[in-house]
Amino acid sequence: MIRFEQVSKRYPGGHDALHEVTLHIESGELVFLTGHSGAGKSTLLKLISAIERPTSGNIWVNEQNISRIRRSALPFLRRNIGLVFQDHKLLFDRNVIHNVLLPLDIAGFRRHDAFSRARAALDKVGLLDREKSMPVALSGGEQQRLCIARAIVSRPPLLLADEPTGNLDSGYTADIMRIFSEFHRTGTTVIISSHDPSAVPAGRQRIVRLDHGSLAS
């Protein structure tokens, strides 16, 4: 599903975030991306969603080379990717359900269908009773769950989560990891980055460790 071939990324200013990374992730895998902060985890996720472009090398997502993807093709790539951000990126001018409706509006769903889908997504993350609340009234963990609901509402085949538990205490962390593994069980490819090894639940999932921009294992 995702293939990195000798991918390097150097940011303007000369900082090498990734160096010659070659990586293959199968469809339906659950992958944990670990490493110290600054190891290149966020960069790797940004490259998959084409938020950043590689300096060299090729990246394939769904058989499409996205290293030199045209700007006009970006939206259609992104619609197949659910993004969970460490800082949530919620919209504070609208209530919970309207935050979840945004991807469905973009995809052009009918209002009625969109609402029932959004409620299903909120139910999955346990926020159904908060649909009319404003995001500012939610706790940190609830905001992160809302971000996840928005990422999964259009049922993308690929889910990328960048430090989803970064600011949360361990109780919330387990909660959120449970949501991700449930989602993975429905066949979705899930990639989760975390600098905290204790956030990775015990199990048989694949762990990819980055060290100073290179693969460590």
Binding site: L74, P75, R78, K89, L91, L102
Partner: peptide, 16 residues
């Protein structure tokens, strides 16, 4: 701008 940024990240076209 926040709404625009988020919309772009989740697949909104420029036209949208």
């Amino acid at each position: 701008l926040p709404e625009i940024e988020v919309s772009q990240l989740i697949g909104a076209t420029d036209r949208f």
